[in-house]
Design a binder for these strands. Structure first.
Lengths: 148, 148
DNA sequence: TATAGATTATTCGTGTACAAAAAAATCTTT
DNA sequence: AAAGATTTTTTTGTACACGAATAATCTATA
């Protein structure tokens, strides 16, 4: 044989994860209906809806965004007038975030489409396969850090 | 009940795909050993190794990058002196890409680590689960566009 | 063969993604 | 109480990611 080509890009987990995520992003954008709102902004709004008030860093940990990314996401949500930011009186390093009326209204409206987005993302699978896939994906999404 | 909270971010396919991909990126970075080389650059080099010569847009389709992203990736690979670019004499819109000696040497060296990266990415799963997961992921990565 | 339509590559603008570093506030330890 | 370490946020720099616009080229067909 001329060259060994037993490394097939199309069978690597990372490449496939990237493409599956890519496909999901397209579906999100199509189904969410709000061309301004991104998946990360949506995730931040959902968590703020669930928790009421959270510090910026804490929200970042809950939504798997690092501090710099969170900073940008929050800045844009605030610029759009969806969230409030106020310093924590008990720890003045912290910035406490919460939804305002506008933000609450928007996320309650948009979250109804969340189920359809996940359904459409998993549509190539049978119901049984969907459950299996999600269970396995949960294991692969856990950030069990290698060292530390 | 006060509020309906049946939408759990942590159970949505998109959020999980993003986090699994995130975890894979960390593993890639740790295992590849070359702090300059990114997953997309690696993918481009692998495909160039497999095919010899390809146009820039075609390489983008093969690696699931749009034209603008491809442009940036190729620019950086060329700046690092790993690939050659020449216009296609048969179609002067096209830019034909290929590895040079340096690029061939690098990818042949790095590709040996590719298997370990996929292994480590799938490590939370049993061997049987890995096969199932990859099979399902292939289905979800396919860009069967909704309309068109 | 003229021209409308498609393709290729580039550029611009916005939004993740994260490392690294800086600045302010807080906590720990002695 | 002060030094030293840690935490929170912000900023900077690089690299995806993709829509949209543009220029050059090619193709198909009227």
């Amino acid at each position: 044989m001329v060259t060994q080509k037993d490394y097939i890009l199309e069978r690597q987990a990372g490449h496939l994860l990237r493409r599956a995520h890519q496909r999901h992003s397209l579906i999100f954008q199509e189904y969410i209906g709000d061309s301004q709102l991104t998946p990360l902004q949506f995730a931040a709004l959902v968590k703020l809806r669930d928790l009421g008030e959270v510090s910026q860093n804490h929200l970042g940990r809950l939504t798997a965004m690092d501090a710099a990314t969170m900073q940008g996401v929050i800045k844009r949500l605030a610029a759009r007038g969806l969230i409030e930011r106020r310093p924590d009186p008990n720890d003045r390093r912290r910035l406490i975030l919460s939804l305002n009326k506008e933000g609450r209204k928007l996320i309650e409206f948009l979250i109804k489409k969340g189920g359809a987005i996940t359904d459409q993302t998993l549509k190539p699978l049978t119901p049984a396969e969907r459950k299996i896939f999600l269970d396995l994906l949960v294991k692969l999404a856990r950030l069990n850090k290698v060292s530390g």
